[in-house]
Nucleic acid binder design. Structure first.
Length: 254
DNA sequence: ATGTCGCCTCATAGGCGA
């Protein structure tokens, strides 16, 4: 079972990129983030052989899941704050797995309300991760975590020192998630490997110089970790014309 | 501070979020 995750930075602007990616990689499941559209193009993906579910809002955020097999939606909001209306969370059951798609808050600038929202969101997410361990359902959470976990996950730590994605508080929370027993699938299969990024700024030829960061992740529950055969970053979509600033990460389960 | 995208609107330029 091949699962991909991609922050597309507008599903409308990236529809042809998406078609090329699906045709080339043919994933069984695709998690998408930053749809930036209230209406999701269900029919477009149906014509390509995919079921889909989406949680959307106007202009910002938005997450969707495509799958070749049926998708059962189990939750569309991150519990813990009734006032939170951001479209950032989608929990499903697909082929016996709990598959969760997240678009965690960016949180810039640090020391802002947006940064406090990011930290509170991460705390609420911890509670869900803890719950999920109890029922034994093999669980995979993919998406844009908006956290640079370690120094080797960016080209130059000094360049990100003042960015919300690299602050001690969110990085500490990410480590707390791993301490619960979840595995960062990419890092566990590529220990110590440098220069492996999923996002590059649009400006200053960041992609051409590989000045990027690794912020799109797959976390897997303990029962699923031994079944991860490979986890790779596909740089091709980022190299195309008019790309998203993120590129897909892919994972294969036995 | 800046760079570049994509979205939206008291819209064709500017603000917001990333």
């Amino acid at each position: 079972m091949k699962i991909a995750s991609w922050n597309v930075n507008s599903v409308r602007a990236r529809i042809e990129h998406l078609k090329r990616f699906l045709d080339r990689q043919s994933p069984d499941v695709l998690l998408m983030q930053e749809l930036k559209a209230e209406v999701f193009p269900t029919e477009t993906f149906q014509a390509l052989g995919y079921n889909s579910v989406a949680v959307t809002q106007k202009a910002y955020n938005g997450v969707a899941i495509l799958a070749r097999t049926p998708i059962e939606v189990t939750c569309t909001t991150l519990p813990g704050d009734d006032q939170d209306s951001h479209a950032r969370f989608l929990e499903t059951r697909i082929a016996g797995l709990r598959i969760v798609n997240i678009y965690a808050p960016n949180g810039n600038p640090p020391a802002s309300d947006k940064f406090l929202y990011k930290l509170a969101w991460m705390d609420r997410f911890y509670v869900e991760l803890h719950h999920w361990l109890a029922d034994g359902i093999p669980t995979l959470i993919g998406g844009d975590y908006n956290v640079i976990p370690e120094d080797i996950d960016c080209h130059k730590p000094a360049s990100w020192a003042r960015d919300a994605l690299f602050q001690p508080e969110p990085r500490s929370r990410y480590r707390d998630w791993l301490a619960l027993g979840y595995t960062d699938a990419f890092r566990s299969l590529h220990p110590g490997e440098t220069g492996q990024f999923t996002y590059w700024d649009y400006f200053r030829l960041a992609f051409e110089h590989n000045r990027g960061i690794r912020i799109d992740h797959f976390l897997v529950s303990p029962s699923l970790a031994p079944r991860v055969r490979f986890c790779e970053i596909d740089r091709t979509p980022r190299s195309e014309q008019k790309p998203s600033d993120h590129t897909p990460i892919l994972l294969e389960l036995d």
